[in-house]
Amino acid sequence: MEPSAERRIAWGHLALVTALAAAAVAYLIDARGVSLHPHNLLFLQPTAVLVVVLWAIIALACLRGDRSGEAPAQTWPERLKVLALVGTFGLFILGLERIGYDIAAWAFVTVALAIGGERRPLMLALFPPVFVAAVIVAFKAMIPYPLVTAIL
């Protein structure tokens, strides 16, 4: 028999909370590998244990199919749009030091405008370079660090 929607295991939530708890345990193992002295573990160890206890409570609720507080389900095109933005933003961050902040930002703004639904060619061609130039010039004037740029 098919389990009802309410009773289905909340797999996504379970995966997230388990990954975070696993990261906390990995952190504790790393810290214990550094030293077992109280000055190292005094605060960190009880907090990591608390995370594991809370994980057990939350995981149990996930297994019972508790979906309270979850964001409303999105359609596939909506999900793809969000994932495309998350991916493009990641590529932008990766490209900052490699191709320069100016070019990376220009490319990101153009692609993100298109993901957001901007279709006017003039807007896609003119707005990104003007905006990025203004931001780069302003930050270059304000911050005391050298900024890796290709053009500006």
Partner: peptide
């Protein structure tokens, strides 16, 4: 928002660098 989102993300990134 299609204009605001990339702009804010770029300014936030520059702020994070600053």
């Amino acid at each position: 928002l299609r204009i605001l989102i990339p702009c804010v993300l770029v300014v936030a990134t520059m702020g994070a660098f600053a």
